[in-house]
Design a protein around this nucleic acid. Structure first.
Lengths: 318, 318
DNA sequence: CTGAAAGCGCTTACAG
DNA sequence: CTGAAAGCGCTTACAG
């Protein structure tokens, strides 16, 4: 049983509130120096730590943040989480991790539970288009930040997959190439999804010679299929991913991909969230990082293994 | 501001405690059916959720667990965490994640903070030999479970690295081979550490033809060094890892390694912890999984890519 | 100035 | 039987 203020007050022959004031260094407290010293010694001796639950109830502040993601087993989200923790932990926050596996039901139930616990804020990297839970967060006035995608109600909604598809189509148009709808296949964001999609693409009568996968994990799935079919990468089929997860440079050949500073995604998200929490005002602030293409062996035979570029964030306020 | 019992009591013209009893389905509560219905309707209508912080203070139970690991970015710990969450979440617990990067200072400060928050229990996968924080956990009577290593005070202490070294030496002895101390190099458990250790080993005048790395991540580091030196795997140097992380099968050649059911490590640890929490008694229970060697291309040229075996746990009580 | 009281939101033993 | 009270451990506005 950890020691309480009441107990400490009794031992020091002062009122518990006085102990609290000494522990919290209340500047308005005037107290005889010997008494203060006696209390301080007691605090040190007992290694007094205020009960965070009681403190949370009184102060309406738990110093707990939550990160909601599809799956921590995906290296992208692991790096993202580290970014969040590295930014939040020095400021006294602990971070809850919730995996949804992309299930709206699990996401919903996690969010309910986080709300019941009165977490100070939520970072969501699992929101989908027109996500009702995002509306719910706003309605409950729970501070939140969306990472790596966004969800908007009024305007036409956009998210990562849709934007990357648009980029692909724009690039084709730039070169004056026609878009062939059979060449665009839904994959989801997992290795398995990437494998299924690649199977369909590589079975087409007029086999494509290059695949742009929506994420690196999707590209990993495509890699496996190409290899099992005996296709050489990049000679028979070139593959490009997105995110530049650590695995990208360890593949053989190394994966050409679009570098994004994943750790910074998390750290910046945490900072935006803490800003909201501290000011008490929700922000419509948006941070966009300029992505950068990193060319490696999966598209150019004999290409080296270039390291990731350093990117600087571009802040935007809606 | 979420609705409170006091407010609900006022609206239903009953005492707040009566609302609490209805919400918690208190069997000892006798109440006029129409009143009960009125209260139940109100509960549904307002989507009442008891304030978890207040509940935690009263009940001395936060329904929060913590997982303390070196680094979630290491796939081993990501899989372990999923095991914990998958076992704990259906029972109403949320899980805090703390990364220590192997720093005793960070571990200590995380643990202090977890204690202040009154988490119900801690799962530690970052403890080292004779770890003072383990003694501290016991002293504070905080329920805990150590994963993938253990730390013991009375008896000679043992942990993963030391045990694997012993296994290596025992295997040499079995074959009547002499142990050469220059062939045993400290690497730590990271890719970088593995790379440094492999550099030393592969620079020896009488270059070893096989490396047993203490973990898969260490093996990944050795892989990179061997490749940069132009050595063929397994022809010039064979490499074996430990853990069978997902990355193992994606390497080229695939990594020969020792399979352990990482997800189950986490799930079983969570169950042991919940058992302690519910019974209120610390347990000295120990669960050992039998590891199994999975031979892949990094040791046998042309070996297939065999899947992981199914393992069953062996329970042991000290 | 400083000690005692109120109150955060809950649960449950207890008096009427 | 059921309503009102106590108390979990804290912080801070307020009376003396």
């Amino acid at each position: 049983m950890p020691v309480t203020l009441k107990e400490l007050g009794a031992r020091a022959h002062v009122h518990p509130s006085t102990v609290s004031r000494v522990a919290n260094n209340d500047p308005s407290l005037r107290i005889a120096p010997p008494t203060r010293q006696r209390i301080e010694a007691l605090l040190r001796e007992t290694e007094y730590q205020p009960n965070g639950v009681a403190r949370g109830l009184k102060l309406r502040q738990t110093l707990v943040l939550a990160v909601v993601i599809p799956d921590i087993t995906n290296p992208f989200f692991a790096a993202l989480f580290r970014g969040v923790e590295d930014a939040a932990s020095p400021r006294g926050y602990n971070v809850l991790l919730c995996n949804t596996d992309g299930s709206p039901a699990r996401q919903r139930s996690h969010l309910q539970s986080l709300h019941a616990r009165r977490v100070d804020g939520v970072i969501m990297a699992s929101s989908f288009l027109k996500d009702p839970t995002v509306r719910w967060l706003r309605h409950q006035a729970i501070p939140y930040v969306l990472v790596n995608r966004y969800s908007d109600e009024g305007k036409p909604t956009v998210s990562t997959g849709a934007m990357r598809r648009r980029g692909y189509l724009a690039a084709l148009a730039d070169r004056g190439l026609a878009a062939d709808p059979r060449l665009v296949v839904e994959s989801g964001y997992t290795e398995e999804g990437g494998a299924r999609a690649a199977e369909r693409l590589l079975a087409l009568p007029d086999r494509p010679t290059a695949i742009f996968a929506v994420t690196d994990m999707t590209a990993v799935g495509a890699f496996g299929v190409a290899r099992r079919m005996g296709l050489r990468i990049p000679e028979d089929v070139a593959i490009v991913g997105y995110n530049d997860i650590p695995l990208a440079t360890r593949m053989v050949p190394a994966l050409t991909t679009v570098h994004v500073p994943i750790h910074d995604f998390g750290a910046v998200a945490a900072r935006l969230l803490l800003e909201q929490i501290e000011t008490g005002a929700p922000s419509r602030r948006r941070v966009v990082f300029n992505p950068e293409l990193v060319v490696r062996g999966s598209t150019v035979s004999g290409a080296g293994n270039p390291a990731a570029p350093q990117l600087t964030p571009a802040f935007a306020t809606e």
